[in-house]
């Protein structure tokens, strides 16, 4: 062995910011995460120039996957233009030289915080979800070693008890976001704090979803064509947010998840949460020839 063989040419920075060993470790863990859908795989979670809890998990997965031909879209709570989304998108473009887009139809890689776009994702697209708390059992079992044993035993009785207690106390399931869901009939996962509206989009989807929690150092995945079933009682059906009848006051689009904007007179206006969908609807209304993709929800209903 020569010294030459142990070194490599000088680079000002690793391509995609992460060094080779960080990428290889995330690659190995992504393989296992896909092989056991919904099971949380621990990983090292390296430092990135962003505070933990601000999307570092998703960012590390994105930086591992990117190449200069991959078009990247970043969403923060449905919006492409909020500070978090804009700075992550700019960072990826700067360190990996990737083209960026806001259009869901054009994107190859979509990193998202807490929303899945309204347009159906294709089978060549990868959705990376940022996860603040990857452990669905945390509200019922704060000790993560015991929680891991419960996952190993598929011991999810307390999850059902939690839902039962919510129904008894409040008359309905109060879980608004990160609704616990059974993946491939085996592991309960939290789908990251996406609204209930978005959970059915993961069930038997065509795209690959990778969920990564940077602060908690766990990675898990939902491969394409995988069952994702929200935990429900057979006599209390799963309900999504009651937004089917709401109309966006800016774009006029109707039947999608809305943000509520309180007004001074006590009433509310609504604005479609998937900002790019709203932008495209407005541009089409103004006479531009904009392609709108097929949406998961049709007339406010998810076809079953």
């Amino acid at each position: 062995m020569t010294l030459q063989a142990l070194t490599k040419p000088w680079e000002p920075m690793s391509y995609g910011f992460l060094d080779g060993s960080a990428k290889r470790e995330i690659r190995r863990k992504m393989i296992k995460a896909i092989a056991v859908p919904g099971c949380q795989m621990p990983y090292a979670s390296r430092e990135v120039p962003m505070a933990r809890g601000w999307g570092t998990g998703g960012l590390q997965v994105s930086l591992t996957l990117v190449n200069p031909a991959m078009r990247v879209k970043v969403i923060d709570q449905g919006a492409d233009d909020s500070v978090n989304a804009a700075s992550i998108r700019r960072f990826i473009a700067r360190v990996a030289g990737t083209p960026t887009t806001m259009n869901t139809l054009e994107a190859d890689l979509i990193q998202s915080r807490h929303r899945i776009p309204e347009e159906v994702l294709r089978e060549d697209q990868v959705l990376v979800l940022q996860v603040p708390n990857p452990e669905p059992l945390r509200p019922v079992q704060p000790n993560m070693s015991i929680a891991r044993q419960m996952h190993a035993d598929a011991d999810y009785g307390r999850m059902w008890l939690q839902l039962y207690e919510q129904i008894v106390r409040s008359g309905r399931v109060m879980q608004g976001a990160s609704y616990p869901s059974l993946v491939h009939g085996r592991h309960v996962m939290t789908p990251s704090p996406i609204p209930r509206w978005d959970v059915p989009k993961l069930h038997m989807a065509k795209h690959l979803t990778i969920l990564s929690a940077g602060r908690e150092k766990r990675i898990f995945a939902v491969p394409p064509f995988t069952r994702v079933e929200p935990l429900v009682f057979s006599d209390v059906p799963y309900k999504v947010e009651d937004h089917a009848e709401l109309t966006c006051h800016r774009s006029g689009t109707r039947g999608y998840l809305m943000n509520e904007i309180p007004q001074d007179d006590g009433s509310s206006l609504f604005e479609v949460s998937d900002s790019e969908w709203g932008v495209k609807a407005i541009r089409r209304r103004d006479g531009e020839d904009v392609a709108l993709g097929e949406t998961w929800y049709k007339n406010g209903k998810m076809p079953s």
């Binding site: 000002p12 920075m13 591992t64 190449n67 030289g97």
Partner: peptide, 25 residues
Amino acid sequence: VVPVPSAFEARSNAAFKAILWSLAR
């Protein structure tokens, strides 16, 4: 400066993409 992947990086990235999708599909 627009970063450019080295030949090694490009090869491993493309190989991993094939591995990832072969296990996802």
